[in-house]
Write a protein that binds this DNA or RNA. Structure first.
Length: 890
RNA sequence: GGGAGCUUAGCUCAGCUGGUUUAGAGCAUCUGCCUUACAAGCAGAGGGUCGGGGGUUCGAGCCCCUCAGCUCCCACCA
């Protein structure tokens, strides 16, 4: 195989095998008699592009699904995309704006046509990118949250919840995004600390002017606020009833600055006298707490903002100006009017829209809500009772806290791109919720007893549903859109077979957005949990620990990385250090390490393929020993890798295989069985090696699918359609013969020691040496040592008579290399003395331990026995070293 | 303001119910080597008073207390 280059070049190989897998439909799954292993992809935004978070996430998923497939399960990884209502709509609005088109100038239908066009043009790019990574998704099952079937399930679920009384409509204080001009759920608001200001404003007492007469003597109070632009919505000022400073205000009225509206002074314990001046302005329309005070005291609600964050007519002043601009202007104008006492720097938390990053405005509006507390009960129990397992488990606490304090979910969005709320308003008031307009009409006729009603009399709700109201059905709807009170009896139904899915891999950021709600939906509409295990990945960060983001520009382009290091190399780079729940500090050098590993595998394959096997050659003992040893070692590694996978410790599983391949297989095994120069290899060793290599490839395949397929295909003649990806993982050995491993370990240490001596004394590896051994040296170890350290003869001695030796100890066995004049007596003595000092010190600590009566009496027997063994070994070593030193002195 | 977690070699992390010689790995570093699979490699080597302090125990990286630093989640203090 001299035609193979010394460097692995992945590009064509990746393309070739991905096409091959697709052509033979190896990713596709249909229900059969095998045990199912299903997994649903966290659907990326339909018009999104791949970022490093996706790379990590999907690499993990692909490893899991490929391994499951190779364990003989019927693996099905369902891909798809999310319509991402607000994000996509924002992009389309932006695109239209560039073309000079305003959304408000378009009809709903026309806008949706643009949105669909955008989706067709940019949609699915991300799925193509996932193919480059090697993702073994069942592309024939690609799903989309706005597809016809999926949409039907979303609408059914809405109707079902409405009929159960779990969906209601009402005016509530919601999070308003003035940029997207829609309501958001609490989860879509991100609170961040902001450097702001605290403004101290003067509110004059209403009747004081009359009594005091002079302007200067007018009584006033100072109110501290971070939002002076909201004073036009003030309808009261509140103080704590126990606050002595403000007793005089009881029953009085105050004048709101600039607009001179009279508002009452109210008293409530909610106000903290310690904060600011202990005087709180109450703006029920624009603050949730103020709203509650307003409810309690029957205050007027004055909404001074338009939907886009500018001031409305109700504000009286600054009408049409933006809220932040007004904040600056009000400060100036208040100061000019002598109504601003002072301004202090102040840090406070402000809510921002997760999508548009606009500052959230609390706003009273009519919205649709889901009553969550009852729905959440089984979902909470599922995680608490370990029916659904979270990895790492620390998220259990967070999950419980959230579920126990769950609030009603605002599901209506003032957007067009999404599932339109299936509610129709009747001409004379009232509404009907139904799956279709036709059904709504039928119900409406019945309800109104008016058979003359037509479709055009009904007006459908303008709002659409929160994206998460569709994605919470993902593990159900991708298999069957007939959810919600429409259970299918057919047992061959995909949902019956694949549900519940096995693993879900996602980011902790969407634990509540998505994971918790999927569990809720699972219990509500599919009769149980949607997945057994949830693997929560970390966040991909750059070297400085910053989160990778578009704004910072610190995120490498995944496709460029794949082109540079190969998909397998990048996959390894993502996995070499990424324990569940911990952040991944990403560094390109990790991909380089991955690429280097691919190259290592590639070259060991070149070596093996270059060998000629001959029946005439007998199997040398050292080769027999190596084969025996390596099989045991693979067996042992398999057990621990399986254990790693059970615990979702993928990095550790990979590292074990990495070391097994690089250090043990390439470094020791292949070196041990290498035939002598110019000679053929014996048939037995050759076949064993091919089979071992085959097993190694299969073990590595879930992590690095492309190179393993390429080499596996070249290892033997394969039929068209055959593939490593549908082969089985090597069998797991039930028992490991530790003595075989121990013997080889001894051989390795002897070899390493001899190499050290050679290096130290400048003895070429080609020069054969004699080895004297005093103590136990297994024949297996001897065979390997002779082969790898170029030992021409091994002599067992009772006592070393030759002083001119280099010596070393492996466990309790003493080894000597007679080197004659090469031995520097002084140096050798120094070395022995250092060893002696070490063992004496060690022996001393062991003896001290054993001399401690309390230790001997209270420590368990096996621990004490172990210490005794340490003592014996150390004593033997000390004796041996002293003996050697004596000889050197003689 | 509440809650959770983290702090072990230059970097990233293992270290399972306290006991396996003097605490491990990968990468990086240093020293030799182009040794006929691989310099994207081979052979060797160095590197840590386990964040500080105190305690429990025959025995602590692991348990308890305390201090310091970092991170995340939740929360309506203007």
């Amino acid at each position: 195989m001299s035609t193979l280059a010394a460097v692995y070049s992945p590009t064509e190989i990746e393309e070739k095998w991905y096409a091959y897998w697709m052509k033979h439909r190896l990713f596709h799954s249909e229900p059969d008699e095998r045990e199912p292993y299903a997994m649903v992809i966290p659907p990326p935004n339909v018009t999104g592009v791949l970022h490093m978070g996706h790379m990590l996430n999907n690499t993990i998923q692909d490893v899991l699904v490929r391994r499951a497939r190779m364990l003989g399960k019927n693996a099905c990884w369902v891909p798809g995309t999310d319509h991402a209502s607000i994000a996509t709509e924002a992009k389309v609005v932006e695109k239209l704006a560039r073309e000079g088109i305003k959304k408000t100038d378009l009809s709903r239908e026309a806008f949706l046509e643009h949105a669909w066009e955008w989706t067709r043009r940019h949609g699915g790019i991300i799925l193509e990118q996932l193919k480059r990574l090697g993702a073994s998704c069942d592309w024939e099952r690609t799903s989309f949250t706005m597809s016809e079937g999926y949409s039907r399930s979303v609408i059914r679920v809405f109707v079902d919840l409405y009929n159960q009384g779990k969906i209601y409509r009402g005016v509530r204080m919601v999070n308003w995004d003035p940029q997207a001009q829609t309501a958001l759920s609490d989860e879509e608001v991100i609170h961040r600390e902001q450097q702001g200001k605290l403004y101290y404003l003067k509110y004059y007492v209403s009747d004081s002017a009359a009594t005091a007469g002079a302007e200067a003597a007018r009584d006033y109070v100072v109110v501290a606020t971070t939002r002076p632009e909201t004073i036009f919505g003030d309808t009261a000022v509140c103080v704590n009833p126990s606050d002595e400073r403000y007793k005089r205000l009881k029953g009085k009225k105050l004048i709101v600055p600039l607009i001179n509206r009279e508002v009452p002074v109210i008293e409530d314990a909610y106000v903290d006298p310690e904060f600011g001046t202990g005087c709180l302005k109450v703006t029920p329309a624009h603050d949730i707490n103020d709203y509650m005070l307003g409810e309690k005291y029957g205050l007027e609600v004055i909404d001074i903002f338009n939907d886009n964050g500018t001031l409305s007519e109700k504000a009286q002043l600054y009408v049409g100006q933006d809220r932040f601009e007004v904040r600056r202007q009000v400060e100036v104008d208040l100061a000019a009017a002598g109504l601003l006492e002072k301004v202090e720097d102040y840090v406070n938390k402000v809510g921002f829209s997760e999508r548009t990053n606009a500052a959230i405005e609390p706003k009273l509006s009519m919205q649709w809500f889901v009553r969550m507390s009852e729905l959440a009960e089984p979902a909470l129990a599922a995680v608490m009772d370990d029916d659904v397992l979270l990895f790492p488990p620390k998220f259990k606490n967070t999950y419980r806290y959230w579920m126990e304090n769950i609030k009603d979910w605002c599901i209506s969005r003032q957007l067009w791109w999404g599932h339109r709320i299936p509610a129709w308003y009747l001409p004379q008031g009232g509404l009907v919720v139904a799956e279709t307009a036709e059904e709504a009409l039928t119900v409406a006729k019945e309800k109104t007893k008016n058979q003359q009603l037509t479709l055009s009399d009904l007006r459908q709700d303008e709002d659409c549903l929160d994206t998460w109201f569709s994605s919470w059905l993902w593990p159900i709807s991708v298999f069957d859109a007939n959810v919600a009170g429409h259970p299918e009896a057919d047992p061959s139904n995909d949902l019956q077979y694949y549900y519940p899915t096995a693993d879900l891999v996602t980011a902790p950021e969407i634990l509540f957005f998505w994971v918790a709600r999927m569990i809720i939906a699972g219990y509500e509409w599919a009769g149980g949990y949607p997945f057994k295990n949830v693997y929560l990945t970390g966040i991909v960060r750059d070297k400085q620990g910053r989160k990778m983001s578009k704004q910072l520009g610190n995120s490498p382009d995944p496709i460029a990385l794949i082109e540079k290091y190969g998909a397998d190399g990048v996959r390894l780079g993502m996995l070499l250090t990424s324990p569940a729940g911990n952040d991944l500090p990403f560094d390109e050098s990790l991909c380089e390490q991955g690429r280097n590993f691919c190259n290592k595998i590639w070259n060991s394959f070149r070596l093996i393929k270059g060998w000629e096997a001959s029946d005439a050659e007998p199997q040398p003992e050292h080769a027999r020993v190596a084969v025996e040893w390596f099989r045991e070692l693979v067996g042992k590694t398999l057990l621990s890798v399986a254990d790693d996978f059970d615990k979702y410790r993928l990095s550790e599983a990979l590292m074990e295989l990495y070391k097994l391949y690089w250090d043990e297989f390439s470094g020791w095994y292949l070196e041990a069985i290498k035939p002598q120069q110019g000679r053929a290899m014996d048939q037995k060793t050759y076949r064993a090696t091919i089979s071992i290599f085959d097993a190694m490839l299969r073990l590595l395949h879930p992590f690095m699918p492309f190179i393993t397929e390429e080499l596996w295909q070249n290892l033997a003649a394969r039929k068209d359609g055959e593939s490593i990806m549908v082969s089985l993982q090597p069998f797991v050995a039930q028992e490991v013969d530790e003595s075989v491993l121990d013997n080889f370990e001894q051989a390795k240490q002897v070899v390493t020691n001899i190499r050290s001596v050679r290096k130290e004394k400048n003895i070429p590896s080609k020069e054969p040496l004699t080895l004297l051994v005093r103590g136990a040296f297994s024949p297996a170890a001897e065979a390997i040592a002779c082969r790898l350290a170029n030992i021409s003869q091994v002599v067992s001695v009772e006592e070393n008579t030759d002083a001119l030796c280099a010596s070393f100890l492996v466990k309790t066995t003493e080894f000597y290399l007679p080197l004659g004049s090469l031995v520097n007596v002084a140096e050798e003595r120094k070395k022995l003395e250092a060893d002696l000092a070490y063992f004496k010190k060690f022996l001393g600590s062991v003896l001290a331990k054993l001399g401690n009566e309390k230790f001997v009496s209270s420590a368990p027997e096996n621990i004490v026995a172990l210490e005794r063994k340490k003592q014996r070994d150390a004593e033997a070593k000390v004796a041996s070293l002293e003996e050697q030193l004596k000889k050197l002195k003689a």
